[in-house]
């Protein structure tokens, strides 16, 4: 294995070990999406009866996709917290000092983010199925949903890593959460895009989260839509935020 791979695996392993040993780190990441799923899919299920709401797989499936992608995004955000915590505790210095290839550190955090998401995704999926979620998509469509969610997770992790390597402080956590919340909620969360109204209807079509949600919902209902747009947007964001994270690493190196 190359030095890049060795560093990435070591960092990912350590982060997952710390996460799963520490209930305070893993429980919120699992509980929040569950609460959202229960609150939205249960409490708001009558929205499916609104005229013009057309989603053949039912409201639980409609909301599941949002919660699934949201847990992917917040898996990345929580990994950003871990980066900030490493800098505050001084542990990042150990990593910077021992890693022959420091770019591997970013990949390690990305793999850890994916690992966190794998855990919450499993819980959310089990909860969705237990709540009677209807899955009409086949293996390929569901695979597409999973890949899309992983890309969202990677995007959020890269944003978190880039920001926290610059600030090196837990005080940057709000600046990590707020953009992710804004992007997620300026999208058709509760009803399809066509039923949105007012200023949010003007904003939502330009929000990449809209493409992710619509494509994800298309996957679960077996009627994929806007697939290219969603994956192109996700790919572009991975590239852009990958560069942002790399620049963050270089700034951290320059600052000691």
């Amino acid at each position: 294995m190359t030095a890049f791979g060795q560093v990435a695996v070591a960092v990912a392993r350590r982060n997952l070990l710390v996460t799963f040993k520490n209930p305070a780190l893993i429980l919120p990441a699992a509980i929040f999406p569950l609460v959202f799923l229960l609150a939205f899919a249960g409490g708001l299920s009558n929205l499916a009866n609104v005229p013009g709401f057309s989603f053949p797989s039912g409201y639980t499936s409609f909301q599941f996709v949002f919660v699934f992608l949201q847990s992917a995004a917040f898996g990345g955000v929580f990994t950003g917290f871990a980066v900030a915590a490493d800098y505050e505790s001084g542990f990042a210095r150990r990593l910077m000092l021992a890693a022959p290839n420091r770019t591997g550190l970013i990949m390690g955090y990305v793999l850890a983010g994916v690992g966190r998401f794998a855990f919450t995704a499993s819980i959310v999926t089990i909860a969705g199925l237990a709540a009677g979620m209807q899955v009409d998509g086949g293996v390929v469509e569901l695979g597409g949903l999973l890949v899309l969610a992983v890309l969202v997770n990677v995007v959020a992790t890269l944003f978190g890593v880039g920001l926290c390597m610059r600030t090196q402080s837990m005080q940057s956590v709000p600046f990590l959460q707020i953009p992710v919340f804004l992007i997620l909620f300026l999208a058709p969360v509760y009803v399809p895009l066509d039923l949105l109204d007012g200023w949010i209807k003007a904003v939502a079509p330009y929000n990449p989260a809209t493409a992710f949600l619509e494509t994800g919902r298309g996957f679960i209902s077996g009627e994929p839509d806007h697939v290219l747009v969603a994956f192109a947007a996700a790919g572009a964001m991975v590239a852009l935020l990958g560069f942002y994270a790399l620049r963050g690493l270089r700034k951290a190196e320059a600052g000691g």
């Binding site: 060795q6 560093v7 040993k21 150990r94 022959p100």
Partner: peptide
Amino acid sequence: ALDNYLTAHEHFELQAGLH
């Protein structure tokens, strides 16, 4: 620079892995 949630063995695993 040590991680309070890890054991000494786990620190060695990390350090050796990085190298």
